[in-house]
């Protein structure tokens, strides 16, 4: 379970990205976070795995006070939390399998990771992760030879190879076309259901968020202004989150 208790994040330049956020996410939940760019979505997501440190309040993940973690403990803690990014963040010049194996490095002794020695067990974990997202046959292709959708699947496989309990997805389909977006979101739903992994995703497209997530959190200027099941989201709520009505072409599907 993830618990935010009055979390505040102020950046060194004085910008306050989170202004007292409180929320709870149960294991196995599928949460979409929506809001304008700059509303604090990315900061909220990155504070969970301490890629950003919070300045005030408390953030507990399975009872562990996240901001107290440092060095080795923090790295150990991050092992349980996978992350997927808008721009995939793959090493484009190497093979798909090497990209996925990278997720195993944190568990390996330094000398083995420097030598690039992956055990058979790790290779099987990586290949099975690729199989789960349906691109096993691309294992030995270079990452930059794949389409955007396939690259995001590789990134998802890398995340799975980490064997996480929570997946944080930062705009996972924002750089993909609508059809591919749906396919990738279906992968997330499948993983969420079959492996009971918590998924928290920042979503750019409202309709995709409403279609796939069980729960929606709307934030505006660093504050949560809606938190509830996706079925309860109506035009009035969207107007509050975005500050105006959304036009039809801002919703990709109807």
């Amino acid at each position: 379970m993830i618990q935010f208790q009055n979390v505040v994040k102020t950046y060194p330049n004085g910008v306050q990205a989170l202004k007292g956020v409180s929320l709870e996410v149960e294991q196995g939940d599928f949460v979409a976070i929506i809001g304008l760019s700059g509303a604090g979505k990315s900061t909220l997501l990155r504070s969970i795995n301490q890629m950003h440190t919070i300045t005030e309040g408390k953030l507990l993940v399975n009872g562990v006070d996240v901001s107290s973690l440092k060095g080795k403990e923090l790295r150990r803690f991050r092992r349980d939390i996978g992350m997927v990014f808008q721009s995939f963040n793959l090493v484009k010049r190497t093979s798909v399998i090497k990209n996925v194996l990278a997720a195993r490095v944190a568990d390996m002794p330094l000398w083995m990771s420097l030598m690039g020695l992956y055990t058979k067990k790790n290779k099987i974990i990586a290949l099975e992760a690729l199989d789960q997202v349906g691109i096993l046959e691309k294992a030995y292709t270079r990452a930059d030879q794949l389409s955007g959708g396939q690259q995001q699947r590789v990134a998802l496989a890398r995340c799975l190879a980490q064997q996480p309990k929570i997946i944080l997805a930062d705009e996972p389909v924002a750089s993909l076309d609508p059809v591919t977006s749906n396919q990738v979101m279906n992968d997330f739903v499948k993983i969420n259901k079959e492996l009971n992994i918590t998924v928290i995703a920042n979503m750019h497209h409202v309709d995709i968020a409403l279609k796939f997530a069980k729960r929606v959190i709307g934030i505006k200027e660093g504050k949560i202004i809606f938190d509830g099941p996706s079925t309860k989201v109506n035009n009035q709520i969207l107007k509050e989150i975005y500050g105006r009505e959304l036009s039809d072409d801002e919703l990709m599907e109807h």
Binding site: R76, R78, G82, M83, F85, A102, A106, A155
Partner: peptide
């Protein structure tokens, strides 16, 4: 960033 978030040094 991806590697750091996975707990690598």
């Amino acid at each position: 960033e991806a590697l750091m978030s996975s707990g690598a040094s």
